[in-house]
Design a binder for these strands. Structure first.
Lengths: 343, 343
DNA sequence: CTGTTAGCGCGTTCAT
DNA sequence: ATGAACGCGCTAACAG
């Protein structure tokens, strides 16, 4: 690669002092317009690019966000993550920030590790994506300052982390209401990994809504395993073998739902005539399956944007106590729960 | 955050000199075993983490890889990218490298920009994902050294870039053969954006294979637009309206295929009985649609791994001229092309 | 508005 | 094996 052009080179070329060059480049208003133009010209001629390491070292910040994505071993990030990432990247870019991605297998993240990482200066704030648990810093590991860390998808405010997530209860409630309106009275809930705290919350959201509508023992729960299609398929096969099959199934993720639906249809049952199936997430392909899948669309891109903004608020002290931001999802009724005569 | 612990702090604590500490940490063998242990102990006690910016500045490298993902405006990275990313991250991690992700809208990447970027020291090598075109450095923008840049998914060796991709022709050939064996004699090819060079190659691969089997005017081409499902759907609607419909359709991406299949089935036609459809990519949900989709699985994770390895080879001079590495895909026959009686 | 000076924290010569 | 000193390239505080 071509030798690096430094401020010193520009200084030499222009006869100005290094610090003047530095200012002309980073604070153009603090410099006479001629020097500014001169510097800009020479800089572009020589192909100057500021050395970020040097700047970071000097300024003590890196202007980059660490995105820590918890995922299961060997699994790629899901389409929802991907959407989220889009939001994160876009917002970060608009703020002149960089994004560093790191996939990790742990479900529970320790403050110690993150702090350690931030201390390396590689990033100066972090986004925890789908982290199940947060081990707050012990004693003196942290100063009094709030950590510039935001949790996405999971409510970790109890552990002290500002969090952004989808208002999931609304989503599940919408599904239940929709299914009730279509006459369903027996339900199954296909959940993700059992050790995921949110799964309890989701299950309860469904159960309570049913109770509220006077249906008390109308819900059974099927283990789904990881949030992937094979798990959904297994759950579907188990479902098919059931003696008293509910007529409506709510899956806690679209991936599970698709696997489930596949298994159900393979068995010869019709969707939605024999079994109505709903998912959750809003992955794009749910609109193009046959039948298309009723689901709840998480505002993933927006979650990403907001998370980055919250990072900013944490940084400049606008936020002083852990805050939970819940974004509204969009319920989308589709064929998998709607008898053919309707939409 | 807690004040940063620096080498100076460790020096103070241990009574040793900073440079000794530095050595003890980065080159343990060049130091007496007692001091090594002492340093390690104190370091972990104080929670030392080396400042990467400082190290980078001093060493002149950053140990990070820039992943530049070309995508369409507002679109999240596709599941294939995601798999790729997994491979990249895993391999990078095993080599102690970081990964910096950047989504970009340009289809054609200019060496000038990348070089500029690398000069900032944020990254010292780059992976171009699905970059359509590469504008090599003009004249003196680069030294004689080979740029530490690898193209993924696209063959950019002609422009001077070492590239890793799927052996696509094999994949399309496999599809054609499979369909021919099932008795199909009229084909449609649904392509992606017209300005994508590979689309021509893919189309030709199909056409030639057909010719080779004695079928010369058996192929029509349908515009697909971007590689997404809505585009596939439109193509499918156009297809349905055709007078002489081919019985077999080859889509150049799974997303297109799913949109296409959806449109076809909506029209009342049956898949595969009336129309056989095949995709390309190997997205995970293709196994769970109804009917499941015949496709060609790209070795995406492996592509990522190899790309990172190639970066290493470029760096240490093992590779001196642009090289093309083509990985074999896996053809996967599924229901969308197989009459029910069969698998 | 511009030049001078002093670090940022680490790696790496040199000596010792 | 260890210590002293310098430099990586840039920013920031202080003068002028």
């Amino acid at each position: 690669m071509a030798k690096r052009v430094t401020l010193a080179d520009l200084a030499e070329q222009t006869g100005l002092n290094i610090s003047t060059i530095s200012r002309a480049l980073s604070r153009p208003d603090r410099v006479s317009s001629e020097t500014r133009r001169l510097v800009e010209k020479v800089a572009s001629q020589l192909g100057y690019a500021t050395n970020i390491a040097a700047r970071n070292l000097s300024r003590g910040t890196s202007d980059t966000i660490l995105v820590l994505a918890s995922s299961f071993k060997g699994q790629a990030i899901s389409p929802v993550f991907t959407q989220l990432l889009l939001g994160v990247c876009e917002e970060a870019k608009s703020q002149g920030l960089n994004v560093m991605l790191q996939q990790c297998l742990e479900q529970t993240i320790s403050a110690r590790d993150i702090i350690r990482y931030l201390q390396t200066g590689v990033a100066d704030s972090a986004l925890l994506v789908a982290a199940e648990q947060w081990l707050p810093p012990t004693d003196s590991e942290t100063g009094e300052k709030i950590l510039p860390i935001v949790s996405i998808f999971k409510d970790l405010t109890a552990a002290g982390l500002t969090s952004v997530m989808t208002q999931e209860t609304d989503g599940y409630t919408a599904i239940v209401d929709h299914l009730l309106a279509r006459g369903h009275r027996q339900f199954a809930f296909v959940s993700g990994p059992e050790d995921i705290m949110h799964e309890q919350i989701r299950y309860r959201a469904v159960k309570q809504r049913l109770s509220a509508q006077g249906l008390d023992n109308a819900l059974i729960r099927l283990k789904g395993g990881p949030f992937d299609m094979p798990s959904g398929q297994k759950a579907g096969q188990a479902f098919v073998a059931l003696e008293n099959r509910p007529s409506a199934v709510i899956c806690c993720s679209d991936a599970l739902a698709l696997g489930f639906m596949h298994a159900v249809m393979e068995s010869g049952l019709r969707v939605p005539q024999d079994v109505a199936i709903a998912g959750f997430d809003g992955m794009d392909y749910t609109a193009f399956t046959t039948p298309s899948l009723t689901t709840v669309i998480q505002p993933a891109v927006e979650l990403g944007r907001v998370a980055v903004q919250l990072l900013g608020d944490l940084h400049n002290g606008k936020i002083t106590v852990p805050r939970l931001v819940a974004l509204a999802p969009t319920f989308m009724a589709r064929q998998s729960t709607c008898p053919p005569c309707q939409d």
